[in-house]
Amino acid sequence: MHGRHSTRSTPQRPTALQWLRYALGAGLPAELAPWVLADTTGPGWVRRHLLRAVVQLSPVLVLCLVVVPVPLSYRLSAAAGGLLLGLFFSVAFMTETTEHRVAKAGYRPGTAARLRAERTERERLERRSPYRQGGAGSFD
């Protein structure tokens, strides 16, 4: 299992091919584990999750648009409906999917959820900070 990694340094990123395989569900080399953790817990993690879902749905959408022998309007409707349904299910299982990715990278189950909760709490406390409310000069 991996220990806690510093979130201050930028982790090594996967190559384009590695990212594509990762988006489709494959694991990444162990040295990219900190990147997986940052990808699934950092700001924008939901947007990145949805992007991976679109990548996963793309082959089926392309087949629907190119191969099915019906008028284009039907193909477009079917592709749009399939995309929306796929994204709906992706959102429904977003937490479980990201936890699985993090566990596959070698972290304990629950790590991603815990780190996201810690970040959310930290951000909430920072927003409530007196320094944010009235500025540093309000303590004079």
Rank of each mutant, 00 (worst) to 15 (best):
T97V: 03
S90Q: 01
P69D: 06
S77R: 03
C64R: 05
T97R: 15
K104S: 12
E99V: 01
A33I: 12
R52M: 00
H100S: 12
A103M: 06
V70Y: 08
P59G: 02
L84P: 00
L32C: 09
V66A: 14
L65T: 10
L37Y: 09
V60I: 13
S73D: 03
G44C: 13
A80G: 09
R75C: 11
H49V: 11
A53D: 07
P69S: 03
L28V: 13
L28R: 05
L57I: 13
L28F: 10
E99S: 02
Q56Y: 04
R108H: 11
A92E: 07
H100I: 01
C64M: 11
V102H: 05
A80C: 14
L57M: 13
Q56M: 12
R101L: 03
P59C: 06
A103P: 00
G42T: 08
C64L: 14
A38G: 14
A80M: 13
L87Q: 04
P34W: 01
K104H: 03
L51E: 01
R75E: 07
M94K: 00
R75G: 07
V54Y: 02
R48L: 03
A33K: 07
A92N: 02
L50A: 13
T97Y: 04
D39H: 14
S77F: 10
R47L: 06
E99Y: 01
E99Q: 04
E99A: 03
V68S: 00
F93L: 10
R108G: 05
A33V: 13
P59A: 06
A79N: 08
L50N: 01
A105M: 09
L51N: 01
A33W: 07
T97N: 11
L84M: 14
A30D: 15
T40H: 06
L61I: 11
G44S: 09
E31C: 04
F89A: 03
R101P: 04
L61D: 05
R48Q: 03
G27Q: 07
P59H: 02
S73N: 02
A30V: 14
E31G: 02
R108V: 12
G86K: 03
